[in-house]
């Protein structure tokens, strides 16, 4: 016989299991933590521009901008390896923005993390829906 208490416990178990997939992008979180050295990352301060829907994941145009930033790193949390690129801006840079084209293996979030000259970090993310993935195979 199943008591009410047991039913509640089972419900809790299901809830725990459904919460676990949140750590699916742990590789991206780890890569970002390795880049920031574990420092706190605040939202905002960075603008990341990408198409809402990318038909071809082989070449997705993205732009990042972070006024005053020393560096901007880009991560794709659904790719086999999350790291995409790191831009370091030198003294002769005319702005703190850059554009490039990236590969996305599927629909996922693209994250830009800006390193400010004072050592703090700021980030922004954008979701890109990918119709055809760009990781070959």
């Amino acid at each position: 016989m199943i008591t009410r208490r047991e039913t509640m416990a089972m419900g809790l178990g299901v809830a725990t299991i459904t919460l676990l997939p949140i750590s699916a992008n742990a590789a991206a979180d780890e890569a970002i933590a390795a880049y920031t050295g574990g420092a706190a990352v605040s939202e905002g301060g960075v603008t990341i521009t990408a198409p809402e829907i990318a038909e071809n994941g082989n070449t997705v145009p993205i732009s990042v901008e972070a006024p005053g930033a020393a560096e901007i790193a880009i991560y794709a949390d659904g790719n086999p390896t999350p790291g995409v690129a790191v831009f370091k801006f030198g003294p002769a840079a005319g702005s703190h923005r850059a554009s490039t084209r990236i590969r996305l293996g599927g629909t996922q979030d693209v994250v830009a993390v800006a390193k400010m000259p004072d050592g703090s970090f700021q980030q922004a993310a954008v979701e890109v829906k990918v119709t055809i993935g760009g990781c070959g195979g």
Binding site: V84, A85, A93, G94, A98, T100, I102, R103
Partner: peptide, 15 residues
Amino acid sequence: GEMVIDMALEGAISA
């Protein structure tokens, strides 16, 4: 003689 941009690229950059 001064750096403008120094970019590190990974495999996720398009051909």
